[in-house]
Write a protein that binds this DNA or RNA. Sequence first.
DNA 1: AAAATGAAATTATTGCCAAATATTTCATTT
DNA 2: AAATGAAATATTTGGCAATAATTTCATTTT
Lengths: 197, 197
Amino acid sequence: MPSKPKQFATDLSSSRVSVGDDIRAIRRLRGLTLADLAKQLNRSTGWMSQVERGQNEPSIRDLRKIAALFEFPLSFFFRNHDAPADERGVVVRKASRTTLGTGESGLVEELLSPDLSGDFEMIRSVFAPGADSGKVPARPTQDGGYVISGLLDLWVFGKKHELKAGDSFQFQNSVYRWRNPGSEPAEVIWIISPPAY
Amino acid sequence: MPSKPKQFATDLSSSRVSVGDDIRAIRRLRGLTLADLAKQLNRSTGWMSQVERGQNEPSIRDLRKIAALFEFPLSFFFRNHDAPADERGVVVRKASRTTLGTGESGLVEELLSPDLSGDFEMIRSVFAPGADSGKVPARPTQDGGYVISGLLDLWVFGKKHELKAGDSFQFQNSVYRWRNPGSEPAEVIWIISPPAY
DNA sequence: AAAATGAAATTATTGCCAAATATTTCATTT
DNA sequence: AAATGAAATATTTGGCAATAATTTCATTTT
């Protein structure tokens, strides 16, 4: 008798980017191992591995913990729930972007990349009038951006640059600071390589 | 008597990104060695090395040849001639972007990155109404983009995606094709990693 | 029976070294 | 003074072993 393939309650592998893939991506973003993360969740490494490979469903409770741990909205894991299957992993519609970050006031960031497993991530940032980042610690990444509208002051390598719509920038491993000196929101497309959220 | 530093007609190393750095970047983009390029210019490898390190000035004639060889506009090398020194290599002003490419009709591409030596390059593309790329051969790169305005049909992995303002995409190593199905120009910010022009 | 564990087996990553390529230097030639 | 070309240096590439991470799966727990 031929052995039949193992069956699971839900085939989570049908969508191009599953919850497990997302967990794996954000875990690696923070440099944790399966064992590290499993420990935080009081689960075994084996279980964690299965979850990330879509062979096992994490509980909503687990997902919550993971989201909180990495400061991602829980909804991140469901962002492409209702996207057509063949768009998943490739296209992100304006209406279904994930909002990132800790809700720092004066800044709204939306993920334009379908997932975080690529070589770079694309973010749409909207800076409120007067908003100021203060010093942002240097990261081992390369950052670039394009100002779609509004004004943005950007300090890099100790030098202030006054940017306006149509201007762009790119820099590496620098402490930086931004501020919206205008009275309108500033809209910027921001690129980070490798992804570092 | 202390030996004084060597002097050259022009100190090309003052600007953060010199002509030599540009030549080096675009040469590597195409995977050529110093010897390869030198040969094409009927020069020695040593001379080529000196030019790229700003210890030697290439003639305008040489620059022309290089530009033609790589299909860059000659003006590329002078794009930040009149930018403040401390902006060079970091900021690109709307007014002083370089136009890239071979002037393929229906497509205008401008380089938003200060130079081509980073991990990714940012390009602003404007697609004319009705313009169609036809099949673009796969490259060993990762591509992403954000539609600022207009409409763009994008074929990736054999599937057509109809994008409009606010939508974004990201894909890897794929043959693709784009087309502007609308009656207005489509403006897209395009990211390529690593740079591959 | 289904879910989870934990230890063994497998796979992936890292550090090192040698070989091959590529680049720089510099004494000499044009 | 500019350019060359060969020697010196530096960088990249490809194994290979050691370490770390992940997957598998027989067993235990719920």
